[in-house]
Design a protein around this nucleic acid. Sequence first.
RNA 1: GGCCCCGUGGUCUAACUGGCUAGGACGCCGGCCCUUCAAGCCGGAUAUUGCGGGUUCGAGUCCCGUCGGGGCCA
Length: 453
Amino acid sequence: MSQDLRFRFAPSPTGVLHIGGARTALYNWLAARGSGGKLVLRIEDTDRERSTPENVEQIFDALRWLEFDWDEGPLSQAERADRHAARLAELLDSGAAYRDSATAEDVKAYKAEHGADAGYRGTPSDEPGAAVRLHVPDEGETVVEDLIHGPVAFPNRSQDDFVIARADGSVLYNFAVAVDDAEMGITDVVRGDDHLSNTPKQLLVLHALGAEIPRYAHLPLLHGPDGRKLSKRHGAASVQELRDQGYLPAAVRNYLALLGWGTTDDTTLLSTEELVERFRIEDVGRASAVFDEQKLRWINGRFMRELPLDEYVERVAAHLGREPDERLRAGCEIAQEKAQTLYELWPLIRFLLEPPVDDPKAWRRVMGEGTRPLLEAARDALAAADGFGAADVEAALEPLLARLDVKPGRLYQPIRVAITGTTVSPGIFESLVALGREESLARIGAAIARMGA
RNA sequence: GGCCCCGUGGUCUAACUGGCUAGGACGCCGGCCCUUCAAGCCGGAUAUUGCGGGUUCGAGUCCCGUCGGGGCCA
């Protein structure tokens, strides 16, 4: 078992953890856990505008919600900047990099002369306004040994002598990350496909630095149903939204894991332990995937139903921002089978915690002609019941069906509307029991009164 | 424009070094159950594995070409 593996995850600090980013984090985390390594989190600070402490904290929040653990990057922002400067000077001294004052036009002109597929090669200069470029060999190729794609070769002659630092000394992305990886001892880089063609540049920097090369795994990107990169327009696009909509972290982890990877034996529902045990980064597919919220909902429903009641109540209470009292617990007990998300549970148990809702449509549809005698009979029967357990309630109401010669729905739906205000609720007997005899009678009475003569 | 990646039913995927009547899941349709809505159970439709060649007794799996989608850089 190799120890001290460091997987890095570097979300951009916009405050939003996108689903694609969350999957990347998950794969990093699973791979790290599976190999005895650890996940190192480093926030990308390239976008100063949006890189506020609040935004960074929001990313951490989302990651914590997913129940990941990680180490913060071993180097502070300031330390990183120091290393960048030092390494840059090093490359300049050794001649691996050089100053060049060429403009974009100059590069274009170079290509016009040498061919479009010829990488730009500059001439060293001492001018003050010169940027720093890295020397790229003319011969051979730089190959990325990718765990998912296999070897991917990039011809060196087509690669520009790319800019690694601006004239003012500020470093560019491909140089900065390569230095960071080297300085932080990153052993495994698991990130999106969009970085695949950046990788040869980072390798070139690493080579010039004489640093160790990490293992790379480039994940396929996530797309929306329209085939374009997943974004806000496609509904839930961030982990924060998923959380707000009442999804369970374990279900989200399960679903995300399946978005680009599958088990050989066709298992769909996996606990996190199983995920850690079975996930292998090498088995991740190469094609981009489409986020399908319907499947997430299904998986979430399965996890919801399998949750122990105590934990279920806790999760629900947290989501609703309420105390987990007896009423709530009673509601959870009778509605756990029915909700796919925490969010969906509320309309089902609301009647226990608040007065019945006013739903004119439901009322009109169910409380038609001849309903009043049915409700009166139900009220009387419930009032006279021996006890008020589910069996007692059923024993009280069931005989009415034959006596009044009505189908079950004709009797039960009006009761349902009377006590909840809506046509959808948990089982009618359980609902009455959870509400209690007194309150049930009061609500049925109120409904009768509302119907008038 | 250059370089690179990808292409299995609507969606996510499985198929060790070529042998499978292309498997599973979500969704969809139908049925059962039934006090509503779900869930559950049963059954069904949907894939000439982007397309065209080639190698082979045999290709989703190998080779060539082509189309389409995407990424990075410019």
